[in-house]
Design a protein around this nucleic acid. Structure first.
Lengths: 231, 231
DNA sequence: CCGCACCGCTGATTTATGTCAATAAATATA
DNA sequence: TATATTTATTGACATAAATCAGCGGTGCGG
């Protein structure tokens, strides 16, 4: 369940977050010595909502799903991420529990850094603090979009949006593996899994995309964008 | 439209944000000299979505509405705030435009501080940086709740939630002035204004509250909380 | 091998919620 | 005060979307 945890001392190659570039050699060393890696298989839970939070988490490789477990087993997918952002740790500025769960969508390598280390760096290195703020604020920025999508758009618009995110940001390609189940696609767009199936069918009918079970090929990106914008 | 702007040099009394407490006397002075106040009347716009953003904004007094203007004149109310938080400025870490609008719900006094000043303080004062992070992260934390509310709950639950927020956080009283129109309550809970009216009526019918046009008195907080939790 | 659980898919049905139209109430304006 | 202009309210209706039920397929553990 918890993967293979191993200390790693590759202090010279903290590449999973661009903000590590702001660190001095001494600080890099400090982080490198408080850094642990673990490998997770698809489906395994990396961070569990409600559990005590004592580490910041970065992806070294793979894709991760961040989601909240609502009452009644209904989940809400907050985001799908690839390496490059701080996936969790900010919560520690509010409370000391995980406020959401994170699981592995692919085989994934995670890097844990004690949250005290991060917080210490914020205090002593202004550039690092600024970088963290940038990271957090740009994630927030995307939330505003998401908010409008989920609240002001109907199902086709919401689904179109999500597909465009997969094509444009995650895979940067018009054809990609659909790594989420229809159920999960629904948890991301706030719709029932049956509705996801139906609307994917409508998109296919309209020649907008080709949808196989685990693969999506977008044929008419403009029309998809139109649907996303129209709501 | 833009209120009465006046430089104020009350550098010793930066009480609108608790994070100013982390500043040294010199820094306090620095902020005090780059600080402007303005008074707005109810309904006036303080910050306009899309306009260039060059200042951080704090409330000195009054209530503010933060909202996004979506396409087709449909707005989405992000939050209602009283003094104590940084209302905007964080955006500057992403882009240099306002990503949302802020308007005055009551007569309100706003305090503008050039964003460069804030960013400079983040770099040189670790405690200040930490305080800003705390502020941002605790706002984010409440977003998670909001997300679940808006996505997993039906109308009565969403409305109950919002009313509890007014009673519990904003006014800390079971009876309070409902400063939002039904339309705005709808923009906050993602429902049509007619639905707001209807469900307020149902709540009244069930003896949960007493609803006059501009005033709400919660009679049965427990039942309201139950509705909020049940969804 | 079987049964179990989950997934994808579809059609029928029910429910939630938005929209429209009309009136009343409140508020602003002359 | 009278009049215009929003805002609140209500009922009837339309539609979006969830739920239910059922089917075949797949992977997994006993």
């Amino acid at each position: 369940m918890s993967g293979n945890i191993s200390a790693s001392t590759c202090s010279g190659s903290l590449t999973e977050w661009k903000n590590f570039r702001t660190l001095s050699p001494g600080e890099l060393d400090y982080v490198g010595q408080n850094r642990f890696e673990a490998v997770y298989k698809r489906g395994e839970i990396v961070i569990k909502q409600g559990a005590p939070a004592s580490n910041a988490l970065f992806l070294v490789s793979g894709l991760a799903k961040t989601y909240m477990e609502g009452p009644g087993g209904k989940n809400f997918i907050i985001s799908i991420d690839k390496p490059g952002v701080m996936l969790t740790g900010q919560d520690s500025y509010v409370n000391s529990r995980n406020n959401y769960s994170i699981s592995a969508l692919t085989e994934l390598k995670a890097c844990f850094i004690a949250i005290d280390v991060i917080r210490h760096l914020v205090k002593v290195n202004g550039d690092f603090a600024e970088g963290l703020l940038q990271d957090i604020c740009s994630r927030n920025f995307r939330w505003y979009d998401r908010m409008i999508n989920l609240n002001h758009k109907k199902m086709p618009g919401r689904l179109a949006d999500t597909l465009l995110y997969f094509a444009g940001e995650l895979y940067m390609a018009d054809e990609f593996e659909m790594i989420l189940s229809r159920q999960e696609l629904g948890e991301m767009t706030n719709m029932a899994r049956e509705s996801v199936v139906r609307i994917l069918g409508e998109f296919e009918e309209a020649g907008i995309l080709k949808s196989e079970t685990n693969r999506i090929r977008i044929l008419d990106r403009d029309k998809l964008r139109l649907i996303s914008e129209r709501g």
